[in-house]
């Protein structure tokens, strides 16, 4: 029984509250990010004149050390996170697909060499490398995204490769080739449709990892200094001398921590819920 991907997704949503919760969290985060200019009441960088204001009707979460409206920074921060999630994931998808498909389809020496490279990349610790590069280069959001992409693709490549191998051995790829189909045709008509769900589930995880890494990087003070970012704001709150007084931490640090937690939790929930649905081995063993 082959139903369309959308139909399966909808019925999966109805069956799994975990998936539903995850999708709602990610949707909320995405829509705040997209609609930031209309939601945020203030310019996130504008100095209102008074630092460390308590929450009020004018400033829902008060103001930070620079006198900027914390709520507006929270809203705009989701846009930065969204950019990282989308762009880094796209980069990872492109590299992972290219390497994984090449290795899986070509096989032989090409496969061996590519997989050795994947192994080496998997063994490299990402955060120290990013720190090292960020310390030396001009810091920008584009650099963060590029670096996250360049160091997070190997897992996707490996999944794509192993799935390509199993698909290839099923015979219909060889059949199509036998009927004269070119490699491009095989990839677009046979491989990508069957790989779709598996890669989709993997990408949700990857997006979560990208968001976490960017947040950690800007928390360590190595993100784009000009960007309004959740991780950087948590760091800023933590470094502020005023943070231990009164309830400032509740209106400043906690909202950013919570926003980040919910966004990442959303990705995790979707990933966990999709796992049995997307893993072919698993699907077989359950039916």
């Amino acid at each position: 029984m082959m139903r369309s991907g959308v139909g399966r997704l909808l019925s999966a949503l109805r069956r799994s509250p975990m998936l539903l919760a995850g999708v709602l969290m990610v949707l909320a985060f995405v829509s705040v990010g997209v609609l930031a200019p209309w939601i945020a009441p203030h310019d996130p960088r504008a100095d209102s004149g008074i630092s460390y204001q308590s929450p009020s009707r004018e400033h829902l979460l008060g103001t930070n050390d620079g006198g900027a409206d914390i709520f507006s920074r929270l809203v705009w921060g989701s846009r930065t996170t969204l950019q990282v999630a989308v762009l880094a994931t796209a980069l990872i998808l492109v590299i992972g697909l290219a390497v994984g498909l090449t290795a899986g389809l070509r096989g032989g020496l090409v496969d061996t060499v590519l997989m050795r490279i994947v192994d080496i990349f998997l063994a490299l610790p990402v955060i120290p490398l990013l720190l090292f590069v960020a310390a030396l280069a001009e810091r920008s959001l584009a650099l963060s995204i590029l670096m996250i992409g360049l160091f997070t693709w190997p897992q996707t490549a490996r999944i794509v490769r192993s799935q390509t191998l199993t698909l290839r051995s099923r015979g219909y790829v060889a059949n199509a080739r036998g009927f004269g189909a070119g490699p491009f045709y095989v990839v677009t008509r046979h491989l990508v449709p069957t790989l779709g769900p598996i890669i989709g589930a993997n990408l949700v995880f990857v997006a979560g990892v990208a968001v976490t890494t960017e947040a950690a990087l800007s928390f360590l003070g190595l993100g784009d200094p000009a960007a309004v970012s959740w991780g950087a704001e948590i760091n800023r709150a933590l470094m502020s001398r005023q943070i231990s007084f009164g309830t400032l931490w509740l209106s400043w640090l906690v909202p950013f921590g919570l926003a980040l937690t919910l966004a990442i939790l959303g990705f995790t929930l979707i990933g966990v819920a999709l796992e049995p649905w997307s893993n072919p081995r698993w699907r077989r063993s359950q039916r």
Binding site: A216, L238, V254
Partner: peptide, 23 residues
């Protein structure tokens, strides 16, 4: 444990730091 598996440690760390050390 599934829910907390990917939570960044620096969020919890920051809150713990503020409560147990700073405050």
């Amino acid at each position: 444990f599934l829910a907390v598996q990917n939570l960044p440690i620096f969020i919890l760390g920051s809150v713990v730091f503020i409560l147990f050390i700073a405050k």
